[in-house]
């Protein structure tokens, strides 16, 4: 394809690239700013000297959040919810998605309708809340894990993924005397890394970022780290020791910054590696369920 370099196309190229640079800046700058704050001294922050480079470089904020027991505990809670939640979720999703991907199975259509309907009509906040308390799950860690174990969207994604695996391998395995459990475990799952990675990433991100369910169902020792962050942002709870009343607000800012960086970094570090999977995943998921 030949393109002619006229003045208007050159101008167009410039506009396009400027637009992209603007996108990059607007995505990254908030984090750079927060990162700079987290490394700056309280005096520099209060004198409004921090822009995009840390002023009065120090690591006090990071040191202090890790000595703060509530933060440490909340971080640990979030790790537990994320790992356990993702495992339970993947387990249940795979168990359901595999039989649902077999369109020849009797009742398949009915089960699919059950799933799809739950995407468009839900119990709503109050009935869910009352159910969880009726089941005595309130104030237990299960309240964070079980009620959200299957996201119907992720389930459909997984079903579509399984459908895309050729049936022939399976037929051959059945002839070789493997049963369906064996096929799922030994043949389908090893072929499903992309699907598992996509759904796993979505699920892990959900559990990692969840705070609202912690707020309504849990007691403070069980709070996830996002709820901890929310509480220090809106001033419900205080961070660190009450060293000097004057310093408190500004120490607070660099500490907030440090908490933001420490809670966000794991996700930012992981998602680019899974990009090739989830981009495909979005496509598969967008195809009719």
């Amino acid at each position: 394809m030949k393109t002619y370099k006229t003045r208007s196309t050159v101008l167009f190229d410039i506009i396009v690239n400027l637009f992209m640079i603007f996108t990059i800046i607007s995505c990254l700058v908030p984090f750079i700013y927060i990162f700079a704050l987290s490394l700056s001294s309280p005096e520099a922050i209060i004198n409004n000297e921090v822009f995009f480079l840390p002023k009065g470089l120090n690591f006090e904020a990071y040191k202090s959040i890790f000595t703060y027991p509530n933060f440490f505990n909340a971080y640990k809670n979030t790790l537990i919810y994320t790992i356990l939640g993702t495992l339970i979720s993947l387990f249940l999703i795979v168990l359901f998605a595999y039989p649902l991907s077999k369109t020849y199975l009797k009742g398949n259509k009915v089960f699919m309708k059950i799933v799809v309907f739950s995407m468009f009509f839900t119990g709503g906040l109050i009935p869910n809340y009352l159910l969880i308390s009726y089941l005595h799950l309130t104030n237990t860690r299960w309240a964070m894990l079980i009620p959200f174990a299957i996201n119907p969207f992720n389930l459909i994604l997984m079903i579509n993924f399984f459908k895309s695996i050729s049936n022939e391998i399976e037929e051959a395995a059945l002839i070789d005397g493997l049963n369906y459990f064996g096929i799922l475990w030994k043949i389908i799952l090893p072929l499903s890394q992309a699907g598992l990675a996509t759904v796993g990433l979505y699920t892990a991100v959900f559990f990692w970022n969840d705070w609202f369910n912690g707020l309504i169902y849990l007691k403070s020792s069980q709070f996830p780290v996002m709820l901890f962050l929310r509480n220090i942002v809106n001033g419900t709870s205080m961070v660190g020791d009450a060293a000097g009343a004057v310093d408190k607000a500004t120490i607070g800012i660099s500490i907030k910054g440090a908490v933001i960086i420490v809670t966000t970094l794991p996700i930012i570090a992981i998602y680019p590696f899974l990009q090739k999977y989830f981009v495909k995943g979005v496509m598969i998921g967008s195809v009719k369920g």
């Binding site: 700013y33 962050l229 907030k256 910054g257």
Partner: peptide
């Protein structure tokens, strides 16, 4: 991929 809590925390900063 960023939590809404973090987004709001950054914005309010």
């Amino acid at each position: 991929f960023i939590s809404t809590v973090v987004v709001i925390a950054i914005v309010s900063e």
